[in-house]
Each structure stands twice: as structure tokens, then as C-alpha cells.
Simulated assay, not measured.
Amino acid sequence: MKLARKETDFTNSAGAGTGSDAVRTRRRYRQLRRAELEAKTRLRITEAAMKLHGTVGPARTTVTAVAEEAGVQRGTVYRHFPDEDALFGACSMHWLSLNPTPSPDPWVEIEDPSHRLRRALAELYHWYERNQRMLDNVFRDAPLVPALKPPVEGFQRQLSAMHATLMLGRRQRGRRRARIGGAVGLAIGFGAWSSLVRENGLDSAEAVDLMAAMVAAAGDAR
């Protein structure tokens, strides 16, 4: 009798353990599934905001419009992004992950400053051409939307890093170096590409040639 009772107790205990494991497994699955759905919803909202920034612009992007584009309620947008800074920050990070700016690191390996400049301008102008609509909207709306200040300042820091790389190996000093620095700064800006290509009808390769010649002339000028 005692042996039979022990076997019964063991079976019940094992069954209880198996049942508890099953409950924990189901609970864990539901948690993972919920987290996955939340992540997908957050991404859908982010991509909706990104699309609107690229079409109507950040200043005209409302929470209502983002919710409609993402197919969610306004409250869902606020649950994931409690304020404009959070939404715009996520949008900027996602957009840059899909459209990374050219890195100046490989340019350092090019010893000749003029060749380095041409390589940099070719890559940068290609990036401007591919992303011109978004850049137009962001730079236009930046003075109106405080949440755009961090990404715009981040881009300016990237341009500063590019500028420093493109000044490496240039032996000019004094005013000649200052002129070269000014010419390089002008050449790498979005405004220069926009003026030459969109307003004056050059293609990007011609714009690179013209800006490279301008920088060379700035170094030769007395």
C-alpha cells in the first residue's frame, strides 16, 4: 500500500511539474508574440512618419496623419512615441539606417588630396541625388520644427568630419589654406549640388568636375 501511494504521489508530482512547465511555456510564447507585434507596430508607425516627412515634410506631418498612414489609432502612436522628439528621433535613425551618409574613412587611404576630393564629391553627390526630396523637406522645415535640430546638427557634424578628411595632406598655409577650406566646405554642401544640378542643369559628374576645379583654383590663387 505504501509503495502504491508513493508511486501515485510521484505521478501526481510529475504531472503537476509538467503542467507548470506547459503554462510557463505558453505564457512565455504569448509574451514573445506580444513583443513581436509591438515591435512591428512601432516600425509601422516609424515608417509612416518617414514617408510623410519625405512627401509633405516634417512641419506638415501630424499625429493623425501618421496614425492613418500606419493604420493605427492616435492613442497607439502616443503609446509608442509620447512626444514629437521621440517620434522624429526614431524616424531619423530609421531613415539613416536605410540611407547612410557616405563615410569619409575610406577616403583617408587616398593620398592625393585632389583625387580624394573627387571620390568624396562623387559619393556625396550621388547620395544627395538619391535623397534630395527628404533633404529638401528637412532643411526647409528645420527652423519650424525643434525636433529636427538633433538630426540636422548630426548631419552638420558629419560634414565637418568630411571637411577635415578632405583637408588632409594639403600643404597650403595662411590665406591660401583658408580659401581652399572655404571652397571645400562649399563643394560638399547640399546647396552646391542642388544649385549646379537642379537649378543649372549640370549632371552630377559635371558638378564634381566644376567643384574640383574651383578647389584647385582656390589653392593656386595668390
Rank of each mutant, 00 (worst) to 15 (best):
E68I: 08
T61E: 01
V152Q: 01
L87C: 04
G169L: 09
F88V: 15
R79M: 09
E84K: 13
P102W: 04
D136N: 09
R118C: 08
L117N: 00
G71R: 09
A120P: 02
A147E: 04
R119E: 14
R157C: 04
P100R: 06
L166C: 04
S114P: 05
L121E: 02
T46R: 01
Y125M: 06
P146M: 07
Y128K: 02
H80V: 05
L117S: 00
H163K: 06
A142C: 10
W95R: 09
V138R: 00
R119L: 13
M50D: 07
T46A: 05
E123C: 05
L124V: 11
E153T: 11
A120F: 03
L37F: 12
T62A: 05
K40E: 10
R118I: 05
L43Y: 09
G71I: 06
A59D: 07
A147T: 10
L96S: 11
R119K: 09
D85L: 14
A67G: 03
M167R: 06
L121R: 01
P151T: 11
A122V: 11
A65L: 04
A122P: 01
N131E: 01
H163T: 06
S114R: 08
A164N: 15
A90K: 06
T41H: 06
L144G: 11
E153S: 10
P146Q: 10
V152H: 07
A147R: 02
P106G: 10
V56D: 01
